[in-house]
Design a protein around this nucleic acid. Structure first.
Lengths: 213, 213, 213, 213
DNA sequence: AATGAATGAGGATTCATTCAT
DNA sequence: TATGAATGAATCCTCATTCAT
């Protein structure tokens, strides 16, 4: 069973950082608050309070407030996403999917579940991406890596088999990402649940129509 | 030629507010700074400095910093978008478009140009929408209005003529918005230009494939 | 008929200052606002607004906000009170009162009416007296003047006639002022009306008991 | 020996609030400054400076400047005055006073000492009472409580024994308060000392005359 | 004389951060 | 390690005052 939840992976990285329970509580509280109110609207005293910890403790491990943000987002971007991508690759490649349609549906379901399971982080990343160019660049690279990596391989495979239109991969990826986001973002922003089963089926249906030659 | 630029329409509303040159400078500076650094990371002294004005002047017309935000976003949401929607309606309805393909391309080009022409506002709205539920709701209503208004009419027309798939309008609208956003958002976030001619052609091509029965 | 109303006398001094209608309106508004909210809690823009005047006009005649206060309180202390005292003297001396009791009642009624007619000024003076030593000194001098003036003459007269206890005049004056204030101050502070007829009768009754040998 | 000093009782309540030395210094400085210059004319930076503390510390315990005022005045009104009243009751009731004259003298001395010992608070309350209706109401209730409480009991006792005139208690209380205030207020306002021994004797002498049948 | 836009110093308040215990 | 008191710079905002028109 694949771990499709950053919280779980996150816990690992936190352990590697040798965090005490209180410091982990700080991160958990920060995750919640940053996600709900935004980084700027969250004070370190808010964090301390929600974590049931003194303000001093907040600064023991993480030198600055931005340090906390980095400790939350860093793993998400630098370690967790690629790791998840790797799992995703395996899930995709290992059992060769019968056709593009099934493949697409699986990919979409996979990513939607991922998003749903990590909404708080997603919200934080969204917020920061708008004003933080560095993060934006990072996100761009992620997409590039996906295309030049396992996803690209799969795409080319289906293009050769005539099931996928012969547009540049980047264009295909854009529609894929974009369509998934069309379901995920509204839910993330409004903090509402999604039925990922139905949503992924719908999205796949549309994408198949749009991307089949 | 329709005015497809909020700055222009915005100027009108500003004039109606009877703002002095300095007060307009305050709004211009705020627009720029909010867009670049975010509302929270922009101080009123930043604004005053960029506007070449004293801090007192910043507060003469707009009672609070949030008031400035409202003065920027309000017209965007409450007056300009509907107005733009109206123009867009005319553009759509008046000369009955030969086919759905042309219609779609026009709509998309129209909205992309609109977005490109108002990137700073778009960025600000995006930022705020994440933490401000009120704004989020407002945006939702906008979409509803479009569907129950002119856009919905057009959609139903093309559904009857057999050129548009008979999905719920809200689903069709989602893919439309989503696909356009797929081009606009990256540009907005990275502050990069788009070639709206090519982008709208590409987007329309994909959407036609996905939405034709 | 004696003018027992500072507003009326005030009007004169204002005329002598050659104030325009608007500037008078400034003083009237200031009187009201200072009395209700206090000097510190009244902004010059409050004044301008209530006076129906621009902020600039507020400063045309009165160089500073304190200048307005002075223009209100000055006449009260420096000109109006002595003037009223003079009238009061006449009322007292001219028709030699049959006995101390009647005299006292008249004096008290006279002063209570005066206070009631000028409550706003009274409130302002009270406020300022607490933090403004200068004003406090001024008030002290007023009392001295009364005693060394007409009131003292009358007191000595009734002491000689055996109707008034032979305490130092300052002590007698203290009880007089104090007892009147006991009726006036609560009303002034709570902005409530007094029945000066009954109040002065009560006060006189008590004072007669306390001050008759 | 009864504690007749709010500063002392105040110290208790402060301890209960678990204030640090610096925070107590903030209250002490505030007491002094509010009393001398008035609440409005005292800035939080004034307080910080006099307390030898940073401005941040001023706000650690008391969330707002008004909070400091409340922390000074609250105990005075809500806890200390009733407590003092209780002590005063005992002092009055326990050893049945030989006559009304002695009773009165004791009461007056007691209250005058109380006032003298707490002049700063008295000044602050006076200032605020003028513009703050809430406080005014509170003061009114205090008087009511006194009359319906121990003081009223004593008054009725002496009325029955024929030593106190049979006026309504509220009227008698007015003259009592008023006469004491006649000695206390000028001293409080001018920040001058009183000889409470002589003053209370004088005041009692006058009141006895005025209130004996 | 009157306006009202503009000023900028100052005020209350917040908050990330430090440090002695 | 954890605490939480303390800091002080920074922030939003107010307001008395000035001045060009």
């Amino acid at each position: 069973m694949a771990i499709n939840n950053i919280q779980a992976l996150f816990a690992e990285s936190l352990n590697e950082l040798e965090l005490t329970d209180k410091q982990k509580a700080v991160l958990r509280a920060s995750l919640t608050l940053f996600s709900e109110k935004g980084f700027n609207n969250t004070s370190t005293s808010d964090i301390a309070q929600m974590a049931g910890v003194s303000e001093g403790t907040v600064y023991k491990q993480f030198k600055t407030k931005e340090g906390i943000l980095a400790a939350i987002i860093g793993p998400f971007i630098q370690r967790v996403v690629p790791k998840a991508a790797h799992e995703f690759t395996e899930a995709v490649i290992t059992p060769p999917y019968p056709d593009f349609s099934r493949f697409l549906e699986t990919v979409i379901k996979n990513r939607m579940d991922f998003a749903v399971d990590n909404m708080p982080q997603l919200r934080i990343v969204l917020q920061e991406a708008i004003t933080n160019q560095e993060m934006l660049t990072g996100l761009g690279h992620l997409l590039d890596n996906l295309i030049s990596g396992p996803l690209g391989t799969a795409f080319r495979h289906y293009q050769r088999s005539g099931e996928l239109i012969k547009w540049p991969l980047i264009r295909i990826a854009r529609y894929l990402v974009t369509t998934v986001m069309g379901y995920v973002l509204p839910a993330a922003l409004a903090n509402q649940p999604i039925n990922t089963n139905q949503a992924s089926k719908e999205a796949a249906e549309f994408l198949i129509r749009g991307l089949t030659p």
